[in-house]
């Protein structure tokens, strides 16, 4: 039976006492030298949740089962909620008069810092479910580590998001097992999905100068530190799902973290950003 990491409950009393005294003070926000790397790193978090949230929302109203339709819409909503927090903080760090909405709706593809795996088309349900699982396993490991970030602002976002991501990981693990160990057809599709997605997974663990700069300040772990835990979760669930870990290189596709994207991102942004581009400043 695969075991999933338990949710970590932050120390509620301590957090409440800190919050009651006003916004948690974060010394990293005043560190001018750190600003470009901190901003980029926050965009990586927020852009990955934004683009995946958008991809998942594409199923809204047309998923194969009503319960799945609702679950996907809820997951998308959570991810877009995380985006508001990450990009909101990114805008504060940048301190250039932009806000989360401007960052989401008025940047061009080359300015996006999301992982390539999240911008790939949603494909069939097998690809959607498999991508969600591979991402959730990383997301859960990352947020768990961020609970002890030296940045109180990053830690409080992680504590909020982790509660929701624990549900995401539970659901996607469950579906990978059901579909992998399901019918001949579902097994074939899940194997195919894994083959397509696997070469994009290595990017999650590639450490560059941005990761090193925030890791040196204790804000986040180095990207490569998450690999062992991720592989462990993935191996356990795939085993249970009767799926083999692919032998292909995991790091063949990369570049999203520094703004080099696949052709798919531009089409996604054309749809997502249309309203703000056509009617600048439009509000509900």
């Amino acid at each position: 039976m695969p075991s999933l990491p338990d949710m970590n409950t932050p120390n509620v009393e301590e957090l409440a006492a800190r919050a009651a005294k006003g916004q948690s003070h974060d010394p990293h926000l005043e560190n001018v030298e750190l600003k470009p790397a901190f901003f980029d790193w926050l965009c990586r978090m927020g852009d990955s949740t934004l683009i995946l949230g958008h991809r998942v929302s594409e199923w809204c109203g047309k998923a194969p089962a009503l319960e799945e339709d609702i679950a996907l819409a809820n997951t998308a909503l959570d991810l877009i909620g995380h985006t508001q927090m990450w990009l909101g903080l990114a805008a504060e760090v940048e301190d250039a008069g932009r806000d989360a909405d401007r960052l989401a709706y008025l940047r061009d593809a080359m300015k996006f810092r999301n992982l390539l795996i999240v911008e790939l088309p949603k494909g069939d349900m097998a690809q959607t479910v498999m991508r969600q699982f591979l991402f959730d396993a990383w997301h859960h490991a990352m947020l768990t580590r961020l609970l002890s970030s030296t940045s109180p602002r990053v830690a409080e976002i992680a504590a909020k998001a982790l509660k929701e991501v624990t549900y995401h990981l539970e659901r996607s693990s469950d579906l990978v097992i059901r579909l992998g160990d399901g019918t001949e057809e579902s097994n074939r599709r899940m194997r195919h999905a894994l083959d397509i997605l696997w070469p994009y997974t290595g990017e999650m663990f590639m450490t560059d100068s941005v990761d090193e700069a925030v890791a040196a300040e204790g804000i986040a772990p180095r990207a490569d530190e998450l690999r062992t835990e991720w592989v462990e979760t993935v191996r356990e669930v795939l085993d249970e799902a009767t799926l083999d870990l692919p032998k292909a290189k995991a790091d063949a596709q990369k570049g999203g973290k520094s703004g080099r994207h696949t052709e798919h991102l531009g089409f996604l942004l054309a749809e997502m950003q249309f309203l703000q581009r056509a009617y600048p400043g439009a509000e509900w």
Partner: peptide, 14 residues
């Protein structure tokens, strides 16, 4: 029931 018992819940559901 939100936190500690997840593994048990998952086992039971499977």
């Amino acid at each position: 029931t939100g936190t500690p018992d997840r593994k048990a819940q998952r086992a039971a559901r499977l």
